[in-house]
C-alpha cells in the first residue's frame, strides 16, 4: 500500500478524437489560440506560414457528386513516443539543442522556446506538420495584448512552437493538488483547452495508461486508428471513424494493399 503510493505511476497523456462527432466548427482551433497566446497576422490564408497548433484538415473521399463525402480531422501535435516508447519522437531525437524534449513522466513532447535557436530540423522531421516556425515577430494591435495569458509565454520571432497538450494546465493542476495535499490529479482536473471547448464533445483527453480515464477504453475501439502508424512514430492521438475511407486516409497504402 505504502509502496504503491510512493511510486508515482508513469502517465501517458493522449487524445481520442471522434471524427464522426467532429463538425469542423473550428472552436478547438480558436480555443487553442486563445489559451496559448498564439499570434495572428493580417493575411492568414497562406496556410504554410500560419501558426495553428491545432489544424483542422478537410478530407474528401475523392468521389464525384452525389457520392462525394467530407470529413474534418483536427490535428494537434501527436506527442509521438517513437519506436518502443523510448521517447525518440521524430522531432525530439533530431533537435541539436535539446529544445524539445520527451517527458517520460507524462509522455508529453515539450518545446522550450528560449532554448530553440530556429534551425527547423524538427519541422523537417515531423511528418504531421505539427510544428510551426515564427517567421514574423508576433504583433498585437494596440491594446489587444491585454488579453494575453501569463500562463503561456509569448514566443519571439525565429523559433519553433507547437501544441503542448496545454502543459501549463497540468502544472496548475499539479500545484493545486499539491497544496491540497494530494499526490494524484483527477481526470477532470487536467483537460486541454481544445477538449474543454469542443461543442460536439468530439475530443477526449486523459491518461492512456489509466483504466479510469475515458481515453483508455475509447482508444480500443475497432474504429480507432492513428495517423501514419506505419512510420512507427507511435502517436498518442487516436482517431475514431465509422467510415472506412476515413480510416484508410490515416495512412499510406500501396495500390493493391488490403488494410
Amino acid at each position: 500500500m505504502k509502496e504503491e503510493q510512493s511510486k508515482e505511476k508513469v502517465k501517458k497523456f493522449g487524445m481520442v478524437i471522434d471524427l464522426d462527432k467532429c463538425t469542423g466548427c473550428g472552436a478547438c482551433m480558436v480555443a487553442c489560440m486563445a489559451e496559448n497566446n498564439v499570434p495572428f497576422k493580417e493575411d492568414e490564408s497562406k496556410k504554410l506560414d500560419s501558426i495553428t497548433w491545432l489544424r483542422i484538415y478537410k478530407l474528401t473521399n475523392g468521389k464525384p457528386f452525389p457520392d462525394a463525402d467530407i470529413c474534418y480531422l483536427p490535428r494537434p501535435c501527436q506527442h509521438c513516443g517513437g519506436k518502443g516508447e523510448h521517447g525518440h519522437s521524430p522531432c525530439v531525437s533530431v533537435c541539436p539543442a535539446t529544445a524539445t524534449d520527451y517527458s517520460k513522466e507524462t509522455g508529453i513532447v515539450s518545446q522550450i522556446y528560449t532554448r530553440c535557436f530556429g534551425c527547423r530540423y524538427c519541422m523537417a522531421a515531423c511528418p504531421y506538420h505539427a510544428r510551426y516556425f515564427n517567421w514574423w515577430d508576433p504583433v498585437w494591435p494596440d491594446g489587444m495584448e491585454k488579453y494575453l495569458s501569463p500562463n503561456v509565454s509569448v514566443r519571439m520571432r525565429g523559433i519553433v512552437e507547437k501544441c503542448s497538450f496545454c502543459f501549463h494546465r497540468y502544472q496548475l493542476a499539479k500545484d493545486k493538488a499539491y497544496f491540497e495535499g494530494r499526490r494524484e490529479i483527477e481526470e477532470n482536473e487536467y483537460q486541454t483547452a481544445c477538449t474543454q471547448a469542443c461543442p460536439a464533445g468530439a475530443i477526449a483527453f486523459g491518461d492512456l495508461n489509466n483504466p479510469k480515464h475515458a481515453v483508455y477504453e475509447l482508444k480500443k475501439s475497432s474504429n480507432a486508428f492513428r495517423l501514419l502508424e506505419r512510420l512507427q512514430t507511435n502517436p498518442k492521438v487516436y482517431y475514431i471513424s465509422g467510415r472506412e475511407w476515413v480510416r484508410r486516409a490515416g495512412d499510406n497504402y500501396l495500390k493493391d494493399e488490403k488494410k
Binding site: 466548427c25 480555443a31 494591435p141 491594446g143 488579453y147 474543454q196 469542443c198
Partner: peptide
C-alpha cells in the same frame, strides 16, 4: 444552453473587447 461548450466566435470575444 451550452454546458461548457462554446463556439469559435464566443472564444474570440476578447479580440472584440480589446480590438482596434
Amino acid at each position: 444552453v451550452n454546458d461548457g461548450g462554446i463556439c469559435l466566435l464566443g472564444l474570440s470575444g476578447l479580440q472584440l473587447l480589446y480590438g482596434p
